[in-house]
Design a protein around this nucleic acid. Structure first.
Lengths: 218, 218
DNA sequence: TAATAAATTTAGACTAATCTAAAAATAGAA
DNA sequence: TTCTATTTTTAGATTAGTCTAAATTTATTA
């Protein structure tokens, strides 16, 4: 059985490997987790001795099959708890991250599957992220970054990359939530900002940085 | 903010003080928590320096108002999660203790109250134990030990003192659950065992030890 | 390719929570 | 009331996870 701390390392390694498509470096992990590189280096050796990672000094780490299974299950638990908090307890999508961060570490052979059933097997969490099933399989959705829509193209907002509270609250203020219909009216070369038509009504302009954090489905 | 460990000490102190109606001794706590007396002694000083307990060396501890508030809230969280696990996720009453032990330590200003609302403000947990409200007030119920019923008296099973899985499974096997109607047919002086009529149908005999762990309402 | 910069690991130290063994204080009994 | 048994506390050590500073390895660039 792993400690919560060890589990969090596996999650970070998973996330980085997914993003960069290569072994996670000590520095990447230390920055992801806001800990010192020294602590990470220490931990990587421990996780390897427990069979969770493939680790070669100075070469970064990848997850073993077992490590991958645990990381995926953490993500499953995290996202299902988020659905519970939003759907059943009426929290908003910007409030649930910290609670889910704690709830994902609850140890129980059955809890997560019962929760999944109770929630009627949701495929996506409140931020549009896919929820792996009990076997670790993700539902894949053909989604693209909003930046990739050309002028006059339309799409539905189906996910966000960032899930910081500040970003999500900003989206709320702009009237953007999952399911919102967007049409690109104009793209400004100068700074990459984009003027959008929201649900065929409002017009807003958002920065390039915001655009990059929004996923749409054509 | 207290650690989970510190919180568990407060709960133990609360439980012992309730039971014995006096300051909790180091030994009582160490036996309740299955840790060494030395560890307890250490922790008591720490909890006192944090304003959670009144502690005088060699004299035992009591909770301060703040300590009491935290302990009561832990009990609230524990019991509400148990209701959730049984009512919503269909766990049985003997399966939920360990999960609730973990869930009670989730830190969130609002979660427990949202959960309470979602569950429609239950007053008792799946073992018949009262759930304190947000202000720490318990609903009191006039319940007595089954041992206190005399021959031919009847009552409804409303609570259990023990909540170990083995004990609860034993009750299931004997056909006993909360709400069951019991009538005392015969009390055996010899060993204190009791013959009962269950729901006006079955007859069973249970030991004195089991009797002492059952609460009924006349 | 040699020098320098960046990344990584090791060394040594700290805190929280635990333990065993020994010392000190309190309680009980003769 | 004095001696002995019990309870409690202190001392010193251990483990997980963390840190900073120093040493080492890898990468970059002149």
């Amino acid at each position: 059985m792993l400690s919560s701390t060890e589990e969090n390392y596996l999650k970070a390694i998973y996330k980085i490997s997914e993003r960069d498509n290569k072994a996670a470096s000590t520095n990447a992990i230390s920055s992801e987790m806001s800990t010192s590189a020294a602590s990470v280096s220490d931990m990587l050796q421990r996780l390897s001795s427990k069979g969770m990672t493939h680790y070669e000094k100075y070469k970064g780490v990848t997850l073993t099959e077992q490590g991958n299974r645990i990381a995926t299950n953490l993500i499953r638990k995290h996202r299902l708890w988020e659905v519970f908090l939003v759907e059943k307890l009426n929290f908003t999508w910007d409030e649930v991250h910290d609670m889910a961060e704690q709830l994902e570490h609850i140890q129980s052979p059955d809890l997560v599957n019962r929760l999944d059933q109770f929630l009627e097997y949701p495929k996506f969490d409140p931020h549009g992220d896919p929820i792996p099933d009990a076997d670790g399989n993700f539902t894949h959705r053909r989604q693209i970054e909003l930046t990739n829509l050309t002028t006059k193209e339309s799409g539905t907002l189906v996910g966000v990359q960032e899930d910081s509270s500040t970003f999500l609250k900003y989206l709320d203020q702009m009237g953007l939530s999952l399911g919102t219909e967007l049409k690109v009216l104009e793209k400004f070369e100068f700074d990459g900002s984009v003027k959008l038509l929201v649900n065929n009504k409002e017009q807003i302009t958002i920065s390039n940085k915001v655009c990059k954090n929004l996923f749409v489905k054509k």
